[in-house]
């Protein structure tokens, strides 16, 4: 069984919020200096789902990632946890791609690979939160797509998927090949040991450029980012409710909350 996992390198979503700023003019989020990129956490969930299938029934897991100046140390973590192959689609033209462009570039690589039974993505990227790449791939390849998976079983050429929905769970069955996007509930990615991390640095990885794949991103129609601004500033004010007894304090608090129309 061949499983393809699409993974993205993103700015660390756990970075210090006070050090993170928005450059509205350049329409860029500026991370605090000295903050390494990480694998998109939802993509890590997708990889974990693939590895569980590999553990249970055997599979070849190939990770694909696209971008410019990609951090190989970070991406090789996928090999350290058990992926068999890493294909980097690296080109100056792949910088700051939107979901639509990314889906096209990934599809070009997927077509080149040719043989696949399952394509896994994270439900969304931690930086853009767009959540469109998975469905984009499915749409271009004309494959079934199941999003926000929290459980995944493969048997008899079919995928049994449980989805997270706002008021519970939904069970879906899809024929293979299919595209499935993973949610965090599907499981945190296993942690590699130092030995595996170091060994992964030596594994040969495949690199493909735009010209190798025959894609021209500039020809794609796409929405433009019009503006990017910092969230409005928030101020907090703390007033202590003082009273003789806790009961009185509670009552006073309730009155204050009502008066200030918070409730």
């Amino acid at each position: 069984m061949n499983i393809l996992v699409c993974m993205k390198q993103v700015p660390d979503p756990q970075a210090s919020s006070s050090g993170t700023t928005v450059d509205s003019e350049a329409k860029k989020v500026i991370m605090p200096q000295g903050t390494p990129p990480v694998l998109n956490p939802y993509d890590e969930n997708a990889l974990e789902a693939a590895l569980k299938i590999k553990d249970a029934q055997g599979a070849k897991v190939t990770v694909i990632s696209a971008g410019k100046n990609m951090a190989k140390t970070v991406l090789r973590k996928s090999i350290a946890v058990g992926a068999d192959d890493l294909i980097l689609l690296e080109d100056a033209a792949f910088e700051n791609m939107n979901s639509y462009e990314t889906a096209h570039v990934l599809v070009a690589a997927i077509k080149e690979i040719g043989e696949y039974d399952l394509i896994l993505c994270g439900r969304q990227a931690a930086d853009t939160d767009a959540g469109q790449v998975g469905s984009g791939i499915a749409s271009i390849l004309n494959l079934p797509c199941v999003t926000a998976a929290c459980k995944l079983d493969i048997s008899d050429g079919k995928a049994m998927v449980q989805r997270v929905v706002s008021d519970g769970f939904e069970d879906v069955e899809a024929p293979l090949p299919a595209v499935i996007t993973a949610s965090s509930e599907i499981g945190e990615m296993r942690y590699p040991g130092v030995k595996e991390i170091m060994a992964a640095q030596k594994v040969r990885i495949t690199s493909r450029k735009a010209s190798d794949l025959g894609v021209d991103v500039s020809q794609l129609k796409k929405p433009n980012l019009v503006s990017l601004d910092s969230p409005p500033g928030r101020t907090t004010d703390c007033q202590m409710v003082e009273a003789e007894t806790p009961e009185e304090a509670g009552a006073d608090l309730a009155v204050k909350v009502r008066e200030s129309q918070i409730l």
Binding site: G34, N69, A71, T73, G193, V194, I197
Partner: peptide, 15 residues
């Protein structure tokens, strides 16, 4: 700092 921003660091840092 610049190397870290680019994700270029000794892999043994990860754990």
């Amino acid at each position: 700092f610049k190397m870290i921003d680019n994700g270029c660091y000794p892999p043994q840092d990860m754990p």
